[in-house]
């Protein structure tokens, strides 16, 4: 899927079928990205849907600078953070470890699906600010200055969150293997 994808122009022009094809193509990655950023499957599904709606509505503003995938990643990330801010109170209730039961047994099959589920279960156990920095930097490949600008926090804060987050993630991973 490239910026020159004829489906993009067709979708923007109102071709529902083209739009559905694009959504079907983008949706799996967006669901995964949102799940990386958001604690818990149920909330991630709701937010992924909202992120997708934001992407669809933003398609006319996509100017073809960069790939549609990277653009949709950014839109999804921003939509996710927007949703998280709105539901902060509800999320605070979930922060008590509601999803800890989702941490798989150490004997879980290390297949790719299971591995990614295991990884996100570990992410669920570290603070959101560190989680978001880790995902933006190590999953989306954003630079520290870009993260700093997106999150509105100083560069050193981003670096600190990354450093501490990696340490926690490694510790959790090591502890789970023991």
């Amino acid at each position: 899927m490239t910026a020159a994808d004829p489906r993009l122009a067709a979708a923007v022009a109102g071709d529902r079928r083209a739009l559905e094809e694009l959504v079907a193509e983008i949706l799996p990655r967006v669901r995964n990205l949102v799940r990386y950023l958001v604690r818990g499957d149920a909330e991630a599904e709701d937010i992924a849907q909202e992120a997708m709606v934001a992407i669809v509505r933003g398609l006319p503003s996509h100017r073809g600078e960069g790939t549609l995938q990277s653009w949709s990643d950014r839109v999804a990330t921003r939509a996710t953070f927007g949703c998280l801010r709105r539901v902060r109170r509800a999320r605070a209730q979930l922060d008590g470890g509601a999803d800890l039961e989702a941490v798989p047994h150490p004997d879980a099959p290390p297949d790719e699906y299971i591995a990614s589920r295991r990884a996100v279960a570990l992410l669920d156990r570290i603070p959101d600010d560190q989680r978001h920095a880790l995902v933006l930097h190590h999953v989306l490949g954003m630079s520290v200055p870009d993260i700093s600008a997106d999150l509105g926090v100083p560069l050193e804060t981003v670096r600190s969150r990354l450093r501490i987050g990696i340490g926690k993630l490694r510790a959790l991973h090591g502890g789970e293997r023991c």
């Binding site: 193509e25 990655r29 995964n32 991630a44 599904e45 990614s116």
Partner: peptide, 8 residues
């Protein structure tokens, strides 16, 4: 990050 199953 990709479109294959997981982590969602």
């Amino acid at each position: 990050l990709d479109g294959l199953p997981g982590p969602a």
